[in-house]
Design a binder for these strands. Structure first.
Lengths: 219, 219
DNA sequence: CGTTTCGTTGATAGTACTCAAGTGGTGTGG
DNA sequence: CCACACCACTTGAGTACTATCAACGAAACG
């Protein structure tokens, strides 16, 4: 199944902050994430930049899944590797291979669910809970259990996080200070994040269980 | 194409406020909206109810598209008519009919785009702009041009709107008062809404054009 | 070693939330 | 027909949270 995909794919390696074209002229591209982390950015007129979605390995990215927002761009948030397809041949592939089609449907359903969950987080939770939710998400996706707790390299800058959680960077900094004081978060060196109290962190967000089921890597 | 669907569908008529099961025991249901307006509700522990999505005719609704949120329910927001399928037979139908599969893919892509747009609205805009965005959306979906402007019957209560826009009902009431004062909104009798200045309303939200392209009924 | 960038922190202002009281429409029963 | 309760919405006053602006500190880079 993998091989059939790879035949039609152009492997693309993106460095941190590199932008990938969602439509090259009239040709829509489809990307499938192989490794790394990517995101969709937008900035409504007169408003701050937003990070609307985070993409993880296995995710499918294409223009038709996005609204017509001003300055919509796909950006690699750290070093990433993706497969690129012309949309037409990707669709043909799905039409001819029921397994691929079913797999893509399942993945897109999951991405839809994650988008809704993010809406719920941004819409219903306060700043501290939103940041805790993100830490749970990244902990599940990127974290590895270490001696002091679950740890990972934070691929997002403060500004990125603020834009993703619909918060101000200054406010986010205060929130981070509070979480550190509560012993839920620890910054070793720049970008190296440790979550010393996983259970406490999960109960710091009302949506911990929903995050768990959508961000636990499946078999 | 329609007929092939109808053979396997159970037509369901829902009255206002009726809840539809997303999963009846172990059996996942798929709904396709025929008429009316439906929505997904959730309420995180200790938080207010949220209206996460609005569904319009043609939309596809199934549990696998939703996150595992507490008290997640599908509700008819006014009188609605839907087709219900067992998820298994719906998937079989998609696997055997390339046209249906392509059509469903396109629709789900559109729904994904709308979900992202809603995230952008809730995350980046202030109260007035959010309400203006909803009025544009409903105006495009439900409105008809009348002598005094675009008009429609508002299928949502104040509370519904507040829950959809991540606002407090009291705050929403103040916002509505402001929009009326600006001449963008007019309430004839209960629920009958008139938008006397469509262009001004569209420019009252930074995302007017994105709303236009996702909520204009297509051919 | 200056310059730049990013993150932190304090003071202040703006926005939305909460609670409570008031208004207007609707339906019911005397 | 009117009194009453009920409901949804409106409005005011006070509060909580977040944004804004500015100053400061630390790390990265030339």
């Amino acid at each position: 199944m993998e091989t059939a995909l790879r035949e039609h794919a152009t492997p693309v390696r993106a460095r941190r902050r590199q932008r990938l074209a969602l439509e090259a002229g009239p040709v829509e591209c489809v990307y499938v994430v192989r490794s790394g982390l990517l995101g969709i950015e937008a900035s409504p007129p007169g408003k701050h930049r937003q990070l609307l979605t985070l993409f993880y390995p296995g995710d499918i990215i294409r223009r038709s899944l996005m609204p017509d927002l001003p300055s919509l761009t796909l950006t690699a948030l750290n070093v990433a590797e993706v497969w690129r397809f012309p949309a037409r041949s990707f669709d043909v592939l799905l039409a001819t291979s029921p397994e691929h089609a079913a797999q893509a449907r399942a993945r897109l359903a999951e991405q839809h669910a994650r988008a809704l969950l993010h809406t719920s987080i941004v819409g219903a939770l306060n700043g501290d809970e939103r940041f805790a939710s993100l830490l749970v998400e990244l902990g599940l996706r990127l974290g590895k259990d270490g001696p002091q707790g679950r740890a990972f390299e934070l691929p997002l800058s403060r500004t990125d996080i603020a834009d993703y959680l619909a918060l101000n960077p200054d406010t986010l900094s205060r929130i981070a200070t509070r979480l550190k004081a509560r012993g839920l978060l620890q910054n070793a060196r720049t970008g190296h994040t440790i979550l010393p109290a996983w259970d406490a962190l999960c109960s710091a967000t009302p949506l911990g269980s929903a995050l768990q089921s959508l961000h636990t890597p499946r078999a």
